[in-house]
């Protein structure tokens, strides 16, 4: 099949004042069995033989589990197929003569590094703020000594499926990172190991999310609809509830300065 691509090209990072624009590419001989990234690989090989800069895009496992890849195809994060990362999207989802617009995630907290690659360190800093459990290491406890209900285990596992790709932020009309943050909060807060730090974790991660310059959540639901792992918005409601509990209904914690820092 033949495709016309309009791809965002940007040489310098946004953080260093880089500006970009769309460039048009015609791609012929696209096999329907190619993944979307393989189609771009073929285009890049051609660009390189022509002495041009290949299109920069992030990728790693190409199995839909690492969370590296992702860009917006015709207004949909990761393209038109639900619950699919762009590396697992195949060209059979498109038809001959399609015209596709490829854009990077657009958010202030995700500054563009080059072409379709954005800097998602803001996600890392949200995790650093509280997305962990502190445990004293020693010999592993007896596996059955810490009971976990099936319901909690299931919901924690669903939340833990988040691969941090950033599609939620990309599709949110407010560029909010609530779904990502809520998934990470819920994943740990639902499990016994996460209980000691449950409230301080929620508070710190929410404040870090705000500090990174993401927008606020207005419960549109576009985030969950494009999430390749189908993370549910009920996690956001849970995060809201625990944030309310942490700030309004809990006693000051040791070493807590009261500003959530």
């Amino acid at each position: 099949m033949r495709l016309t691509l309009h791809i965002w090209r940007q040489k310098a990072p946004t953080a260093r004042g880089g500006k970009g624009d769309f460039e048009k590419y015609e791609v012929n001989d696209v096999s329907e069995h190619m993944s979307f990234l393989e189609m771009l690989d073929v285009l890049n090989e051609r660009l390189e033989t022509e002495g041009k800069d290949p299109i920069a895009f992030e990728h790693d496992c190409r199995e839909g589990i690492c969370g590296s890849c992702g860009f917006v195809i015709n207004g949909s994060a990761h393209g038109p197929v639900p619950r699919t990362t762009v590396c697992q999207l195949h060209m059979r989802s498109f038809k001959d003569g399609d015209e596709l617009v490829l854009e990077p995630w657009r958010a202030r907290a995700f500054p563009i590094l080059r072409d379709l690659i954005v800097d998602r360190s803001s996600f890392d800093r949200i995790i650093q703020a509280g997305g962990y459990v502190s445990t004293n290491t020693g010999s592993a406890p007896e596996a059955n000594s810490v009971p976990v209900t099936k319901d909690s285990a299931d919901r924690a596992m669903d939340a833990a499926a988040c691969i941090g790709c950033g599609a939620c932020v990309a599709m949110c009309p407010n560029a909010s990172a609530s779904l990502f943050t809520a998934a990470k909060v819920a994943h740990l807060n639902l499990l016994p190991q996460g209980q000691p730090e449950r409230l301080i974790r929620t508070e710190k991660m929410v404040l870090q999310m705000d500090a990174e310059g993401f927008g606020h959540c207005t419960n549109h639901g576009d985030c969950s609809a494009v999430c390749p792992k189908g993370i549910s918005v009920i996690n956001i409601a849970q995060m809201n509830r625990e944030y309310i509990e942490a700030t309004l209904f809990s006693s000051p914690r040791e070493g807590d300065t009261g500003d959530g820092a």
């Binding site: 617009v101 854009e103 599709m171 927008g215 549109h220």
Partner: peptide, 23 residues
């Protein structure tokens, strides 16, 4: 605060779950 969260908009953007009411 949210008005500056996305300095450059999309050339194309499709609503997936949000409604005309919510937006």
């Amino acid at each position: 605060a949210t008005a500056i969260a996305r300095p450059t908009g999309y050339r194309k953007w499709n609503a997936k779950a949000s409604t005309i009411y919510s937006r």
